[in-house]
Design a protein around this nucleic acid. Structure first.
Lengths: 149, 149
DNA sequence: TAAGGTTAGACAACTTGGTTGACTACTTTG
DNA sequence: CAAAGTAGTCAACCAAGTTGTCTAACCTTA
């Protein structure tokens, strides 16, 4: 049997490809994974570009590029930080929130199909197992999200 | 709970980082994942550069770069294809096989630690589940291995 | 068996998505 | 209040891929 990381990489790609294909079928412009992860991150909290970079596991400059794109495309906007005049909060626009909602539905469709294929309890075990492992490896301080290839 | 693909990406990175760190601790030059995947691929079969590219999910030109590196570093060598004068078989040298053996031990250490953390049966379920899912998604014809970020 | 289409590999130009480094304006700490 | 640290921006660079082109060899197939 393949080593675990290979299975992870292959499954990641398989799911990502399907996600991407379906977005295109529907005609929604397929952003890159990083963009989606930013949406998801911003949904839960207010964050600066630096925060986003940290979450993605890239430099603040790389994060700034992504934020710029999302801004140009109308998915996020910047608002002044209430107390720190250097900083800006990046926040989702309605368009951004809509995209996220749509993507989330698509993900849960895909997860449902996975459950059909290998069993709902197996999917649950996988999710819990990986979550537990991640918690075990680096307690509370989440690492970068980006896989390094 | 996070969507499955995020968990996959994060776990992939977490394991990869540990692998990388330990290789460095030991002083072994840390190749990139792609190199390791090539070793693993060549262990099982004879392959040309084109085959390798297909396996990795990249163009033959990209595969050629990787093979060139491995050649320069002494991990593989090229030998003439017995019947096709255009083609070359890429084969592992002893150095390549040794590296692979070492890496495999390291991977199984890491997998053992994962089993300690979340339970041996959970790891087994994860491996079987992902394998089954991959088989379900694209029957026998394996797709590229590289995660797209 | 010659002709037309395909393929392995090499070379070059380019694109993408990141990096490092430097700098300004502002903030925090001692 | 001075010194150190931080958010964001700009610019130069880099790594790892891509596309496109070419040659030599291969594979029909008529």
């Amino acid at each position: 049997m393949e080593p675990v990381p290979m299975l992870l990489a292959m499954t990641y790609r398989a799911m990502g490809d399907q996600f991407h294909d379906r977005l295109r079928q529907i005609g929604l412009e397929p952003l890159r994974p990083a963009h989606g992860y930013v949406f998801r991150f911003l949904k839960e909290r207010r964050a600066t570009t630096v925060d986003i970079g940290q979450h993605l596991g890239v430099t603040k400059q790389a994060a700034a590029k992504i934020v710029n794109e999302l801004d140009e495309w109308g998915y996020v906007l910047r608002e002044p930080h209430p107390t720190d005049k250097r900083a800006q909060y990046v926040t989702l626009t309605t368009k951004g929130r809509d995209y996220l909602k749509f993507a989330d539905n698509l993900w849960s469709d895909l997860e449902g199909e996975m459950a059909e294929a290998i069993g709902e309890d197996t999917v649950a075990t996988i999710k819990q197992g990986l979550t537990a492992y991640l918690r075990h490896v680096h307690g509370e301080d989440q690492p970068g999200l980006r896989p390094v290839w």
